[in-house]
Each structure stands twice: as C-alpha cells, then as structure tokens.
C-alpha cells in the first residue's frame, strides 16, 4: 500500500498460495520498490495518453489527479499478475499474485474498506505515516488467505 507521495505505508509478505517456487520477495530491496512506483506511475501516464475513446487527452506525462484520465487495473506477465487500485485520496493498493488469478478489483476494494475501517478511523494514526495497526494486519492477513 502506497500513499500519495509514493511512500510505502504497509506491505505484506505472504507465502505463495498456489505454487511453491523459489519466492524471492525476501530479496526485494528498497530499489525494487522505487522501481515499482516508477513503473506504476509511467503506466498511468501511458494509459492516459493511449486511451482510444477520449479525444481530449493532453500531452504525455501531464500530471493528473487521482481518478482523472484513463487508468489501469491490472497487468499480467508469464510469472505474475499485478492488480492496482487508486483511491480518490491517492492511496494506492497493489496486489501481486499468480498470473492465473481472476479479476481482483473487488478484493482491492475490500482491502480498501479494511484500511478505512481500521486505519483511518484509528484516532492514533497520523495520515501519511507507516501503518502499525494490529487489527488491520490481522484482518488483511485473514482476508488475503481466503483469496486463494
């Protein structure tokens, strides 16, 4: 989960649920995160410019508010699928899954609901800081495990 300024708020490391291959998430460095933000950011400007149904698109790379312009909800490679959701306040939720998983938009919305319930409604949480909420951790953990 990523905030408006692309700082990592929260991240889960989960065991692969469907297949057991060498899982190298543990080796993910801070550079990989920056790489992912860069990829998502450029993909968003790419889709906004590519949008074949819109006449008024502006130039490539024009800064856009969350919800403005054509965005994307997932991409798929032969080894993984990345699902992406951006809330109106700019919080981005990212799920990396097995390539054969179906549409995860509802799941992302559910996780966002959990975020609203357990994080934003927590009086001790300052917006923009890393999330340390026990209830949020356990509920997301539980939910992600049911997704398999």
């Amino acid at each position: 989960m990523v905030d408006r300024k692309n700082a990592i708020l929260w991240r889960i490391r989960d065991q692969p649920i469907t297949i057991s291959t060498d899982w190298i998430w543990e080796q993910w460095s801070y550079d990989d995160h920056k790489l992912m933000f860069g990829l998502l950011f450029s993909l968003k400007s790419f889709t906004a410019k590519m949008d074949p149904t819109n006449v008024e698109k502006g130039n490539l790379g024009v800064p856009q508010l969350p919800g403005q312009g054509c965005s994307f909800h997932s991409f798929q490679t032969n080894t993984y699928k990345l699902s992406f959701m951006e809330s109106p306040s700019g919080i981005k939720i990212i799920l990396v899954t097995h390539p054969k998983t179906g549409d995860l938009r509802e799941s992302l919305k559910h996780i966002y609901n959990l975020y609203v319930e357990y994080v934003t409604k927590n009086p001790l949480y300052t917006p923009g800081t890393p999330i340390r909420c026990e209830l949020f951790n356990t509920s997301v953990d539980q939910y992600v495990r049911t997704l398999a």
Binding site: P52, F72, Q76, N78, Y80, L82
Partner: peptide
C-alpha cells in the same frame, strides 16, 4: 516489469487491462 518479477524467468507484460482498453 521483467525486473520486478517475484519469480525468475519473467518475459515482460503480456496483457495490460486499462479502464477503456
């Protein structure tokens, strides 16, 4: 996208699903 793969042997994005295409 190839570098980001959690599993080795990724050959890049095959399908990108955007809102309108």
């Amino acid at each position: 996208s190839q570098q980001l793969s959690p599993i080795a042997g990724c050959s890049g994005i095959e399908l990108l699903e955007a809102d309108t295409f």
